[in-house]
Design a protein around this nucleic acid. Structure first.
Lengths: 249, 249
DNA sequence: TTCTATTGTATCATTGTGTTACAATAATAA
DNA sequence: TTATTATTGTAACACAATGATACAATAGAA
């Protein structure tokens, strides 16, 4: 939920946005053998949250989600997918939003639209860490990457939302080509394996992993090789085309 | 979308419900070797649609979905799961709802809440056909089962929603025990195989199917046998406990 | 008792995966 | 130049899962 970045969103009635519906985005990156999540911090509150936003009156839901994510990281080519809708009544807690608005000099009326109950549609995004440019909105103190297992406390049920997003990512690992979106253009088989191991939270056997990945037929060896340490140079790979889902196999 | 069954839902402002959010339910049943879907017909319009409803102000989203489904089939023990949120702006078409309301003697003002744009949260349900009791609401002419591949034309994007629900069901077939919810208490291995074949839309090999199902360890042989034709009597099985998801395997 | 249709399962081939082993190689050091 | 070392690429084997065929068991009908 609840990036409040434009004048219209602080409007008492929320004209121009759909009521009672928010989008929360779990944006995953991968760097230094760590899964990262993008979090924002509301100005002057010390409150951390997932990036989020609302749906404009004439905007497609998925477009709204893409807008919310790309505003935060400055990229357009993003893997983005709905994973769950969070709609328990117990999520409803207007107090925190009063604090956030107060810290921005807004004293909302009790029937301000942002203090109403919201159903939140959860999206998860996979982005290339090396190209993403975390960009805070006006009412954020910060917008940055955090290690998945070293996050600050988040508002509402956002920690749970991250957990659920990770579970979705894990179970999609067999069906979708995840690396395509989390790794730079070229990468070694070791890089890819590290990514998988980090997402799954367990070690994989190298020969079996390599054999399986090559058998998928979605990797292409780039003729170039790596330079670096005192050992055999690994191949660099890239993904062949835009095949993203191969669940039919 | 858009079962209009209580006085409050025809209220101009939609007091008591969340705005801009609807629930659409794809309720699957299985009978005569056919997958069935429950459809409703709006009174005096010839318009067919999925059963649906809205979320009460203090109601959990999933509870609302359960309420919507159980009101239609009179069962409480239902497998029910979110599968997608339909939120394209092109879904928005208030004309059909004017027709539906007119046919019920309501002439809505142009800003009637039901004529606003709705985001629809799609749920699919699996129910025991033999125990379900399709029950129309006051403003329906009918509420009945239809063969999945012989449905009438549906309003809005409801045909697409059914298609997407079926795809979800198919890809969940490996992870969830589907038969538990679509078959009566006791069934033969042939019944179970027919169900799988119907969902997947293709033939399966009998020995492999039987071996795999038995290996899952979720079936229990009921001592009784079948009586009927001029051949060996099959065993009757039932599902052991409430294991519904075994994706950890 | 014989015949027929269907069920339960054994069997074998093929494929996929876990595991170990080892040759190939890129830098460094002798 | 040659050995050393760390890592990569892949062969090879064992084992499990699955596709496919075959056949014995059996319930009713002829």
């Amino acid at each position: 939920m609840t990036k409040v970045h434009s004048a219209s969103e602080t409007d008492e009635k929320g004209e121009g946005f759909l009521k009672n519906i928010a989008i929360d985005a779990v944006i995953f990156g991968f760097h230094d053998d760590q899964l990262k999540v993008l979090l924002i911090e509301y100005k002057g509150t010390g409150l951390f949250a997932l990036p989020g936003g609302f749906i404009k009156t004439e905007e497609d839901l998925n477009s709204a989600a893409l807008r919310v994510v790309s505003e935060r990281i400055g990229l357009e080519d993003i893997f983005l997918e709905q994973f769950y809708v969070f709609g328990d009544y117990s999520r409803y807690n207007p107090v925190q939003f009063k604090i956030i608005m107060s810290a921005n000099g807004i004293v909302p009326a009790d029937d301000h639209w942002l203090l109403k109950r919201f159903i939140s549609i959860g999206y998860y995004a996979l982005v290339d860490f090396t190209r993403a440019k975390p960009t805070p909105a006006a009412i954020f103190d910060s917008c940055d990457w955090y290690d998945l297992n070293n996050m600050p406390t988040l508002i509402q049920d956002h920690t749970f939302i991250v957990k659920k997003a990770l579970n979705t990512l894990r179970s999609n690992l067999d069906h979708k080509v995840v690396g395509l979106n989390l790794l730079p253009q070229d990468f070694t088989m070791g890089d890819l394996q590290k990514l998988y191991e980090t997402i799954l939270g367990k070690k994989l056997l190298r020969p079996a992993f390599q054999r399986k990945m090559l058998a998928l037929g979605i990797l292409e060896r780039v003729a170039k090789k790596w330079t670096g340490g005192a050992h055999k140079a690994p191949y660099l790979y890239k993904f062949i085309n835009e095949i993203v889902d191969f669940s039919s196999k």
